[in-house]
Nucleic acid binder design. Structure first.
Length: 570
RNA sequence: CGGGGUGUAGCGCAGCCUGGUUAGCGCGCGUGCCUUGGGAGCACGAGGUCGCCAGUUCGAAUCUGGCCACCCCGACCA
């Protein structure tokens, strides 16, 4: 492709409404343009990158035995009512009516459609397992789209669904997909980590998220500094810890703490550390109010509490419920004397010798409380989020926190949809049985954005070669010259013949402009053709990543390019 | 939806507080000259319903009210 013919509207300045680096750079590099909130058009460069990711996904999915299909984006409400999600999904599901007044929605995901498809045509265990996937535009009416392609409302997703005749088979398929995902993200040239994710009621290690590591990521990845344990923050398990051996013998004492409410305020007021406090959080659930006790310096993990209680709804109580549950105002809740409320306590509470708690009375706290004897606890458990430095749940190492961008998620669904939608098959004994399902998603457009978050510098994007819109850019410099043009054309033709995507910057621009654009759009390898070197039969090769230049003979260009690509470090 | 903020040329902004000629600046864009190893220079030029609607006023980008759009912080997720 010739730069003079390509639509690449690069910008010198950052657009005012872009916040994160990938969004700014994709806009500046002329890869995308916004149509409306969370909805973007892809320009040639952006689309080329997207298609490269798609192709890698496609190849690896096919190699693992999955088959590509293409499902409708407009879906009838009936299917969603059948699965129960028409009511459950909420406003993220974009609903509308057609001219016959029939309710429809734009597909945010395709469990319903695929299950319907498979249940109609698959009747025997002989047809299983079956693994189908598609690469398609999804629409989710996100509450708050942001960060460009990182969280759009319309986005490109690879979604795959597997159907097995047995649990064991489903688990085998799951592991197959996990391996495929590893290969996909490795081939994309990304630094990533597969982490254990919350799998809700299914439990076990049957949900993994694939996180591209980048400090601008929205998710927190918890990993061990000595073993290979890694998990999403909401999932990361914690060891129980030791029970206090010398609980306080002091007598609890109610003290005045006027207008001192927050953990910080109380610890400052009393001159103690937040870890000496117990915070009592009142939560509203669909099974009634619950009190959760967490050490002052820790954070409650709502997903863990939710799973422990098997509730579907859980949120922090408002002041009204706090007064109802504790008898005291917001900010002074404590575990002593709570009635009619389930009291859960994090393991760490048991390790405390002494604690300061709220008195359930305005402007009072109680000091010298023994967590072991001072109040009733219905159950101890792992209810807090991990912190950096916590012991690893699998070995003697310690946990570290890193930021990540979730680009993939694989999940064992079990029979959730096959039961609600009656997807059955006849097993070898002629018995009607529910299919065991799994689902596997990759945010394709987000993967492109994540690659940029992970690979950029002050000059622009540094694309990993496999997903770069072009692998090589040929830049001619200096005054118009037939020799230079001829050399450029020759190399350009040769690289294309070798299947290397090459962009020829044939614009009549000054060198500075060409260099800046080449850097900005992140083409991994730049071949610069100038008068001086060409007179000696050489051109210049430059790596966008290392910024190292080397002069190579015209005959050696192809080899040098291939070496640079194969030696590219993630 | 709650909290904060912004809408003036393709992009980035000034002007608004204190209403008053023809609404400015930089970049970009067009033409010509010139230049060609890190976003050159000169000259000429095109491009604006000042987000929309109403109101106040002799007069509104500027003041008032309503609406809309977009961005940031929270709950969601690939």
């Amino acid at each position: 492709m010739r730069m003079s013919k390509l639509l690449v509207p690069t910008l010198k300045e950052d657009p005012a409404d872009a916040e994160v680096i990938s969004h700014k750079l994709m806009l500046r590099a002329g890869m995308i343009r916004k149509l409306t909130a969370g909805v973007y058009s892809y320009l040639p460069l952006g689309y080329r990158s997207l298609r490269k990711v798609e192709q890698i996904v496609r190849e690896e999915m096919d190699a693992s035995g999955a088959q590509e299909v293409f499902l409708p984006m407009v879906q009838p409400s009936e299917l969603w009512k059948e699965s129960g999600r028409w009511d459950y999904y909420g406003t993220e599901l974009l609903r509308f009516k057609d001219r016959h007044d029939r309710e429809c929605c734009l597909g945010p995901t395709h469990e319903e459609v695929i299950t319907d498809l498979v249940r109609r045509d698959v009747r025997s265990y002989r047809d299983l397992p079956l693994n189908l996937y598609q690469i398609q535009t999804k629409f989710r009416d996100e509450i708050r789209p942001r960060f460009g392609l990182m969280r759009g409302r319309e986005f490109t997703m690879k979604d795959g669904y597997s159907f097995d005749s047995t649990e064991a088979g489903a688990e085998t398929t799951y592991l197959l997909m996990r391996d495929a995902y590893e290969r996909i993200f490795r081939r994309c040239g990304l630094g990533f980590r597969a982490v254990e994710a919350d799998s809700g009621p299914i439990g076990g290690s049957f949900s993994h998220e694939f996180m591209v590591l980048a400090n601008t990521g929205e998710d927190t990845v918890v990993s061990c500094d000595s073993c290979d344990y890694a998990a999403n923050l909401e999932k990361a398990e914690l060891k129980p810890g030791d029970v206090s051996l010398n609980p306080t013998s002091l007598v609890p004492e109610k003290i005045s703490t006027p207008s001192v409410k927050t953990i910080d305020e109380v610890s400052q007021f009393l001159g103690i550390s937040p870890s000496d406090l117990v915070k009592t959080l009142i939560l509203r659930t669909d099974k009634g109010p619950v009190a959760v006790l967490i050490r002052g310096d820790h954070e409650v993990n709502e997903v863990k509490v939710k799973n422990y209680l098997s509730v579907t709804e859980l949120e922090l109580a408002d002041e009204k419920l706090v007064i109802e549950a504790t008898g005291g105002p917001l900010g002074f809740s404590g575990p002593i004397g709570l009635r009619g409320v389930t009291v859960l306590a994090d393991h760490a509470i048991r390790s405390m010798d002494t604690a300061v708690v709220g008195a359930n009375e305005r402007d009072f706290h109680i000091i010298n409380v023994s967590p072991l004897t001072g109040f009733r606890v219905d159950a101890y458990g792992d209810f807090r989020s991990a912190c950096a430095g916590d012991p690893c749940p699998r070995c003697s190492g310690h946990l570290v926190m890193t930021r990540g961008i979730e680009v993939g998620h694989i999940f064992k669904l079990g029979t959730k949809y096959s039961e609600s939608m009656n997807a059955t098959f006849l097993d070898p004994d002629g018995k009607e049985t529910f299919m065991v399902m799994g689902c596997y998603g990759i945010g394709v457009s987000r993967t492109v954005a994540a690659a940029i978050e992970q690979n950029h510098d002050e000059d622009g994007i540094i694309f990993p070669p496999p997903i770069a819109p072009f692998t090589v850019i040929i830049t001619t410099v200096g005054a118009k010259s037939e020799e230079i043009d001829a050399a450029a054309e020759k190399i350009y033709g040769m690289l294309w013949e070798q299947g290397i995507d090459t962009l020829l910057d044939d614009r009549n621009e000054r060198p500075g402009v060409k260099f800046k654009d080449a850097d900005l759009i992140g083409i991994p390898i730049r071949i610069t053709i100038g008068k001086k070197a060409l007179a000696e039969g050489k051109v210049e090769l430059r790596s966008r990543k290392t910024k190292e230049n080397s002069l190579v003979e015209l005959d050696a260009v192809l080899l040098a390019v291939k070496e640079l690509i194969s030696g590219w470090d993630v």
